[in-house]
C-alpha cells in the first residue's frame, strides 16, 4: 500500500432539522498521499464544505459528526482533546474556508490578523520578529510587504484571497484544505491565485484538498478528483481518467454539462432535480436521474468498490 498523509474513514455527518435528519456526509472514505493535490467536486449542496469542516472537527450545531475517523499520519483526530485539536489546526491541517476573503476582519490590519492566528496557536511574536515573519509569509504568497499595514478593504479580491492563504500556511501545515478559493474572482486573477497556491504547496511539501465545482480548474490543478453526490463520494479517480473515462453516470453527465469553448449549442444540464437529503430515494440516490438505472439500482444501495489502487466507484453498473 502506498504512503498516506491523511486518511478519512467512513465519515458521517448529519444536520438535525425540524423536518428530519439531513445526512450531508454519508459514509465517506478516501486517503491523501503526501504532496498530492486532491479535488472534491459535485453538485451544489452535496456536502463538500461539510466534509471539509468535518475533517477539521469544526462542525457546529445543528450539525454533528455521527461516526467515522480521520487520521493525520498516525494520529486519530477523534482521540484528541480540544486543545490538541486546536493546535493541530493550522499546524497539521489548515483551511481556507469558503468565502473567507469576505470574512477577514474589516477593522484589523493584515499584519495583526496574521499575528492573531499565530498567537492563537501559541506562537506569540512581537515587534521585529512578527514583522519579519509577516513579511516572509506575504512574500511567499506573492504580496508586497506594504500589504501588512493595510486593511482588507484596501486590497483587491485576489490580494485578499492571497492574504487568507498566508494565514492558512503560517504554521507550515501538512495538509491545506481550500474551499472554493477562487470562485469570486475573474479568470485572470483566478489563475494567478491558483499558481500561488500551487507554488506555496510545493514549497511546504504539503498535500492539498481543493473543493470546488469548476471542472476546468480541477483538470488543470489536481492529481485526483473525488465526486460527491447527495452526501456520498460516488467516484474517485486520477483526473485524467475522470475526464476521459468517467465510471459513474453522474460524473459522466456532469462532464457533459460543461460548456464548450469550441462549439456553440448543446448546452444542457442533468435533467431532474437533486434529491432531498432528508428523504433520499431507496437504492442509489442518483437512480431517478440516471438514464441507465436498472431494477437493482432502485432497491439496493451500491457499495464503494476499489478500481485499482487509486480509484473507487459506487455504482452497480460500473
Amino acid at each position: 500500500m502506498s504512503e498516506t498523509i491523511l486518511r478519512v474513514e467512513r465519515l458521517r455527518v448529519a444536520y438535525d432539522h425540524p423536518r428530519g435528519v439531513v445526512r450531508a456526509v454519508d459514509d465517506v472514505s478516501f486517503s491523501l498521499r503526501p504532496h498530492e493535490r486532491f479535488g472534491l467536486a459535485g453538485e451544489s449542496g452535496s456536502g463538500k464544505s461539510t466534509m471539509a469542516l468535518a475533517i477539521l472537527r469544526m462542525i457546529k450545531r445543528p450539525g454533528r459528526i455521527e461516526g467515522g475517523e480521520v487520521w493525520l499520519g498516525d494520529t486519530a483526530l477523534s482521540g484528541l482533546d480540544t486543545d490538541r485539536m486546536r493546535a493541530l489546526r493550522l499546524a497539521g491541517i489548515a483551511m481556507v474556508p469558503q468565502g473567507s476573503m469576505n470574512s477577514l476582519n474589516p477593522v484589523v490590519r493584515i499584519r495583526d490578523q496574521i499575528g492573531d492566528a499565530l498567537a492563537d496557536h501559541g506562537v506569540g511574536l512581537k515587534g521585529r520578529a512578527l514583522a519579519e515573519r509577516v513579511r516572509d509569509l506575504l512574500a511567499q504568497v506573492g504580496l508586497p510587504p506594504d500589504v501588512a499595514r493595510k486593511y482588507p478593504h484596501e486590497l483587491s479580491g485576489g490580494m485578499k484571497q492571497r492574504a487568507c492563504i498566508a494565514i492558512a500556511i503560517c504554521l507550515r501545515p501538512k495538509v491545506i484544505i481550500a474551499d472554493e478559493p477562487t470562485s469570486a474572482l475573474d479568470v485572470v486573477v483566478q489563475k494567478q491565485v491558483m499558481q500561488t497556491l500551487g507554488r506555496v504547496q510545493q514549497d511546504l511539501g504539503a498535500a492539498i484538498i481543493l473543493v470546488g465545482h469548476d471542472m476546468g480548474l480541477m483538470a488543470q490543478f489536481v492529481d485526483r478528483l473525488g465526486i460527491m453526490y447527495a452526501g456520498r463520494l460516488v467516484e474517485v479517480a486520477p483526473i485524467r481518467d475522470i475526464i476521459t473515462a468517467p465510471r459513474h453516470p453522474y460524473t459522466r453527465m456532469l462532464i457533459e454539462s460543461l460548456p464548450s469553448l469550441e462549439q456553440r449549442g448543446g448546452l444542457r444540464g442533468i435533467p431532474g432535480l437533486a434529491p432531498l437529503l432528508r428523504e433520499l430515494p431507496p437504492g442509489c440516490a442518483f437512480h431517478p436521474r440516471c438514464p441507465a438505472a436498472t431494477e437493482r439500482c432502485r432497491s439496493e444501495k451500491p457499495a464503494v468498490r476499489a478500481m485499482g489502487e487509486d480509484a473507487t466507484v459506487a455504482c452497480h453498473l460500473a
Partner: peptide
Amino acid sequence: SIPRVSTERDWVGEERP
C-alpha cells in the same frame, strides 16, 4: 486564462500582474 477541461495541462503564465 480560462482553465480548460482537458488532459493537457496548458494553464501556465503570469503569476502576478
